[in-house]
């Protein structure tokens, strides 16, 4: 690079980098992730030329580079192990998800006033803040994310809207997508006679 007095007033163009839709890495690094089989399937379908570039016999030969053959073999073995482990983990996570429950609880605040507490949505990857905002708009009322007595986050909506919330969750409305209807229950909580 020769230094010249000429100033370059133009902005450098950003490089467009392709990222793997499965593991989010640049495809050249998929081999180090934990989903190589699925990554390869995706790349072959979406960018077949790149697939050949990275996974043809020559590419596989040359990429070993300065690594010893034993080290490469170990790397491949590790990669397969990692993948199996990640799959088992994903299975377990899915099972746990399917076993978790969302509860919609009607809570009596005083004789006429109720609030509706919705608990457990986060297990289904729902963003509580977004969901609360959505519900507040839907019912034109107040809704917030608060901690319950057990210190867990839940959404509290002003008013008795439990049946409507159930419907929205079953219909997968807005940010409330992804909760199977079987995993939702309505609970009614009567206020205990207050000792004043």
């Amino acid at each position: 690079m020769s230094s010249s007095d000429q100033q370059e007033p133009q902005a450098v163009r950003p490089l467009e980098v392709l990222y793997c839709q499965i593991c989010t890495f640049p495809p050249e690094y998929c081999e180090f992730g934990s989903s190589l089989t699925r990554c390869k399937e995706w790349l072959q379908g979406a960018h077949s030329q790149l697939f050949d570039k990275y996974y043809s016999d020559e590419a596989l030969q040359s990429k070993i580079g300065t690594l010893s053959l034993e080290a490469q073999a170990k790397l491949e073995k590790d990669s397969a192990k990692k993948e199996a482990k990640a799959e088992a983990k994903a299975d377990a996570a899915l099972k746990k998800k399917m076993a978790s429950q969302v509860s919609i609880k009607r809570i009596e605040r005083n004789k006429r006033k109720h609030v509706t507490a919705i608990h457990g949505l986060e297990a289904f990857d729902i963003e509580l803040k977004k969901a609360a905002k959505f519900l507040a708009q839907k019912f034109a009322t107040g809704a917030s994310v608060t901690k319950n007595a057990q210190g867990q986050d839940e959404i509290v909506v002003q008013g008795d809207v439990s049946d409507d919330v159930l419907e929205l969750i079953e219909g997968g409305a807005g940010p409330l997508k992804g909760v199977p209807a079987d995993n939702v229950v309505i609970i009614e909580e009567k206020k205990k006679k207050a000792v004043e």
């Binding site: 450098v12 950003p14 490089l15 467009e16 980098v17 640049p26 990429k63 070993i64 580079g65 300065t66 690594l67 080290a71």
Partner: peptide, 16 residues
């Protein structure tokens, strides 16, 4: 950095 690779000086590691 991926978009603007020249903003930092480079070093390189081996495959291992």
């Amino acid at each position: 950095l991926h978009q603007y690779p020249s903003i930092l000086p480079k070093v390189g590691i081996d495959r291992g």
